[in-house]
């Protein structure tokens, strides 16, 4: 097994008095609430979005899957914004719907099949072309492919690494801050900070 942090660190800290009540509430809810049912996207669109997110941020096979797409859907249903968008992009909801159709169009042009019917390797090739802004397709003439990819990747990353299980996996325990941090210099760890385990 490659280098990794121990399992269960954040989950063990959450019920303790090292975590404030508002922090415990926010993280426990994220840990325990099942992802919302898609409401903004159609079932077909949502399943494509999930397939893309699985390539962007592969799920840890030893852990329950971390929701990415459900939170995107929920945000779009609520018409929430992160406060800005590229002027060259349409409104977030429209950009997502167009972009998903664009990914399928590119997959069909390159491999004669929709995205979800091609191999992982081919899926990655499609996504690389979208990221580089040189994916073929009519839709990308209306929507800058590279910006669509950047926005999707940033939101997927935010959703994934906001999850306590993903934070455990990178050895982050900053939420356990009630005692404060006294050992803050290089190589100085407090007892509650996990050490990485060699492979």
């Amino acid at each position: 097994m490659p280098e990794h942090y121990p399992n269960g660190t954040v989950r063990a800290l959450l019920p303790t008095d090292q975590v404030t009540e508002p922090t415990r509430q926010a993280l426990t809810e994220r840990l325990e609430t099942p992802p919302p049912k898609p409401d903004f996207f159609s079932e077909t669109e949502f399943s494509l979005l999930e397939a893309i997110c699985n390539r962007l941020i592969p799920q840890d096979k030893n852990q329950p899957p971390i929701d990415i797409a459900g939170s995107i859907d929920e945000r779009l249903v609520q018409n929430k914004s992160d406060g800005w968008r590229y002027d060259t992009m349409p409104a977030d909801g429209e950009a997502y719907k167009l972009g998903l159709a664009g990914v399928d169009e590119t997959a069909s042009l390159l491999f004669d099949s929709p995205f979800q019917s091609i191999s992982d390797t081919r899926q990655d090739l499609v996504l690389q072309q979208v990221q580089q802004g040189d994916a073929p397709g009519e839709i990308w003439k209306k929507l800058p492919a590279n910006r669509f990819f950047e926005e999707l990747l940033a939101e997927a990353t935010t959703n994934y690494y906001s999850h306590p299980l993903a934070q455990e996996a990178i050895g982050y325990v900053g939420m356990a801050d009630v005692p404060g941090w006294q050992r803050i210099g290089l190589n100085q760890l407090e007892d509650r900070e996990p050490k990485i385990i060699d492979g």
Partner: peptide, 13 residues
């Protein structure tokens, strides 16, 4: 909360 996502409420959105 000591949680970035929960604290997005501080931003002008």
């Amino acid at each position: 909360a000591t949680d970035e996502k929960a604290q997005e409420k501080l931003f002008w959105t």
